[in-house]
Simulated assay, not measured.
Amino acid sequence: MKGRLILLDEIAGRKAAALMVDGQLDDVLIDVADDAPPAPGAIFRAVADRPMKGQGGMMMKLPDDDKALFRQAKGISVGQSLLVQVTSYAEAGKAVPVTDRLIFKGQAVIVTPGAQGINVSRQIRDDEKKLRLLEVLHETSAPERSHGVIVRSNAINVQDDQIAEETEALLDLADSVLNDTGDQAELLLGAPDPHTLAWRDWLQGPADTVVETPDAFAQHGVLDALLSLEDAYISLGSSSSIFIEPTRALVAVDVNTGGDFSAASGLKANLSAARALPRQLRLRGLGGQIVLDTAPMAKKDRRQVEQVLRAAFRADPIETALVGWTPLGHFELQRKRERLPFPKGLII
């Protein structure tokens, strides 16, 4: 099936969402387990617990005995309460990363408390569309409020009245959270669930089809695609392949040429791996340090592989830093932990 298909369903009682693009699974989201660390986007009232000497950070108390790490803690004293937002999932055994720069994200706009002004995404290059969107925002209460508003690129696919309604709702939500007067650790705003995230971040316009039925995944082949994610092996077509194997320290990606013994086999396999890597990491929910062990190729070909990697990750929604080549010829990446690894054993 050509086009974009957004499927909203459940897996083992957990809400889940899948994005199919031209009949291929492109992204998947699933609710985390009850004992998972706090999810990115959640907003807490945290209490300063103890300073991290020499690091300029502060350990913060969260509800349920969870701990958070706030890195820019200058001027924060022990016992002081602070509104913080989770930025990424915590690694096993480590504190939850948080920031005091809160954002309230919608489908068309993002509200940024403490950063006044109305700005339009740089991805919207059409001057007429920019002007229309700015006019919509100036007809709301945004110019008089103490919060900033960023118009997302997806706003061009949203009706004017919906943009205005969402803007007002997010401004009110920001006021409600910021006016909190408590002094004990407490969850103030939960992270969005997979269905909400799918509506917010995947829906690009009327051409997208949304299916919300109890058997949506089974009908469209999502379950079979998810089951294949439990295998480290990924075929890249022809004879080349990659193996993606997460360890505690890093995610290792091994590129193989298979039965291709031609002079250009290494470069071809590495280019195929570079194009496939963002989607595979996204589907598997993998982040942190990524080490790409490329197939043998001439040193002069590294630049071409890096260019393809940068182009591939530029279109990926998860922030990824391309660090560069190591003395051993590996390529290193650092990927934000926006998701937890896709749980094994859920698909039967």
Rank of each mutant, 00 (worst) to 15 (best):
L7V: 12
A12L: 13
A18N: 14
A18S: 15
D26G: 02
L29H: 05
P38G: 08
P40E: 13
L62A: 05
K67C: 02
A68G: 11
S77H: 12
V78W: 00
G79F: 06
Q85D: 07
V86D: 00
A92Y: 08
G93D: 13
V96N: 02
I103Y: 09
S121T: 06
L134M: 13
V136D: 13
H138T: 10
S146C: 07
R152A: 06
V158M: 09
D160P: 09
D161P: 01
I163K: 03
A164H: 02
T167G: 06
L170H: 05
V177R: 05
T181P: 01
Q184S: 13
Q184P: 02
A185C: 05
E186P: 04
L188D: 07
D193S: 10
G205R: 10
G205K: 07
L226D: 04
E230Y: 09
I234A: 13
L236D: 10
S238V: 07
S239Q: 14
I242L: 14
F243H: 10
P246N: 05
P246M: 04
A249V: 10
A249T: 08
V251H: 01
V251S: 04
A263R: 15
S265D: 00
A269C: 10
A269D: 00
I290L: 04
I290Q: 02
V291M: 11
T294A: 13
M297G: 07
A298W: 07
D301G: 03
E319S: 14
W325Q: 09
G329E: 07
E332N: 14
L333W: 03
Q334H: 13
Q334I: 12
P341L: 03
